[in-house]
């Protein structure tokens, strides 16, 4: 039992090292075209600010809805933009996983002595995502009190939020194992997730609430973490942690099923 745990820890540590290295490498490569990098980051910050501005006007006009106002909107964005930033900056290929699978691109990663999925995901960085990250941090610093609790929860919340988003990317990407080239479906689903996590959809009632938690898990990814930023609530915290872990496990399970199909070679037609 001890040996197993030690092995697990060392694998995690090695992979963590690998991810850190790749991230630094990707960032360094991006710096070759420094101007382009800063331009993308800068404009993404502007982009997110404009989006938030849209909702500012909304709440200016309508006031708070069931206690949900602009401050809550910012909290949501800290986690929506934050998780989007973290995931796409480090795992820059997350959005391309579906394409990689349908093009037979996974084969390349099998030849290396690293977990192929991890490798495929980290081998690229999305430059503008760094802008989302900086925006999220700025929003936090400017609009929320910097207490020990809020700073700690920022990091922890970002972690679980990103875990859910990353799982969702992998889940949607895995569809390619069965459907082949499916760019339109992929984009519609990802777009839906991001839209849900960045609208004040947490105010909805009834059946829709179920929808935004369990059909597109934006609720767990952004709304609960956002609420927890303002005040701690044990039940919400547990929901977030448990859901993200279970969702991740389910996603990996589905991915592996797809992988088995892929490796059986029955997908030759997909690769053409």
């Amino acid at each position: 039992m001890l040996k197993e745990s030690k092995k697990l820890i060392s694998t995690v540590a090695k992979n963590f090292d690998f991810v850190l290295f790749y991230t630094k490498y990707n960032l360094a490569s991006a710096m070759e075209f420094r101007f382009n990098f800063f331009s993308q980051v800068f404009f993404m910050i502007i982009n997110d600010t404009m989006f938030l501005l849209l909702w500012y006007f909304f709440f200016e006009h309508f006031g708070k809805l069931n206690g949900f106002g602009f401050q809550e909107m910012i909290a949501i964005w800290i986690f929506a933009a934050g998780s989007f930033g973290w995931v796409n900056a480090i795992f820059g290929n997350a959005n391309n996983l579906g394409k990689i699978i349908s093009n037979g691109g996974l084969d390349f990663y099998f030849t290396f002595p690293k977990n192929h999925l991890l490798h495929a995901l980290v081998s690229k960085t999305d430059l503008s995502a760094w802008g989302d990250l900086i925006f999220a941090l700025l929003a936090f610093v400017l609009f929320f009190p910097l207490t020990l609790y809020s700073c700690v929860w920022l990091i922890v919340g970002w972690f679980f939020s990103s875990l859910i988003l990353l799982s969702f990317y992998i889940l949607v990407g895995s569809l390619s194992f069965w459907l082949g080239r499916n760019e339109v479906l992929h984009n519609n689903l990802m777009h839906a997730f991001i839209a849900f996590s960045s609208n004040p959809s947490s105010v909805v009632q009834g059946f829709l609430k179920f929808f935004i938690f369990f059909v597109i898990p934006a609720g767990f990814a952004t709304f609960l973490p956002a609420e927890l930023l303002q005040t701690f609530a044990l039940d919400k915290f547990i929901y977030v942690v448990i859901f993200s872990i279970i969702f991740f496990i389910i996603t990996i399970f589905i991915y592996n099923r797809g992988l088995k199909k892929y490796s059986s070679g029955n997908l030759i037609n997909i690769r053409s």
Binding site: L65, L185, N187, N188, A192, A195, N199, S201, G206, L208
Partner: peptide, 24 residues
Amino acid sequence: YSNIFILLITLVMSGVWRVVYANQ
């Protein structure tokens, strides 16, 4: 497939608007 997003976003926003119209 391209209908998925627009239907979802309309669905969610209708929920938001329902709350708005009920409260204000």
